[in-house]
């Protein structure tokens, strides 16, 4: 083999390789918009985080708002409900975790870890039973919290599962208290 041949074949390999790499990269980049288009669109993203006016909410009242297509229960609990929730020993709970993304992931399911920071009366829950996704009924069940009619799960006044087939406490959405009258969910 002469030097010419070797030089030529190397140059050819570089040419083929670089074109193949460039072509593959181009196809990959061109594919991205077609993958990305399946994501939520901008109008849905604009509603991914909502602000809720809770100024009209009085003690012992609940409102349900829709957030990302799901019901969110916002409840201003009575003193009795708070006391009852606080009195429970976490060792007795079926699910010992707080299920609250606003506190540490391994936080215990104490009532303090479940209610809103700085306002222990305020409870914000995603209103979907952790068993099979039904919407529980408020101020019902053996523990005075929520009761899921589908398969009989009982939640207490802190939204914790106490009896029934549901494996976990009612989830809490990411939220923050913006002002005395407004909370921001999401």
């Amino acid at each position: 083999m002469s030097i010419d041949t070797i030089v030529d074949s190397t140059r050819r390999d570089v040419l083929y390789l670089s074109t193949a790499v460039l072509g593959a990269a181009g196809i990959g980049l061109a594919a991205w918009p077609f993958i990305a288009q399946m994501n939520p669109d901008d109008s849905a993203l604009a509603l991914a985080s909502i602000e809720v006016d809770i100024s009209a909410l009085e003690e012992g009242q609940s409102i349900t708002v829709k957030w990302r297509g799901k019901p969110v229960f916002i409840r201003l609990r009575t003193a009795a409900e708070i006391a009852e929730a606080q009195s429970v020993d976490t060792a007795d709970l079926m699910d010992p975790l707080a299920r609250n993304p606003n506190v540490a992931a391994d936080a215990e399911a104490t009532d303090g870890n479940r209610s809103a920071a700085g306002n222990e009366a305020l409870l914000v829950l995603i209103g979907i039973c952790t068993h099979l996704g039904c919407v529980p009924i408020g101020e019902a069940g053996d523990y005075g919290g929520w009761f899921c009619p589908c398969h009989g799960s009982h939640y207490d006044t802190s939204g914790r599962i106490r009896k029934g087939p549901a494996p976990e406490n009612l989830y809490i959405p990411p939220f923050s208290v913006v002002s005395e009258t407004t909370i921001k969910i999401g």
Partner: peptide, 13 residues
């Protein structure tokens, strides 16, 4: 118009 304005890369497609 929803495709052109809101859908991710909808205008391109």
């Amino acid at each position: 118009e929803h495709i052109m304005r809101d859908v991710q890369y909808g205008w391109l497609i």
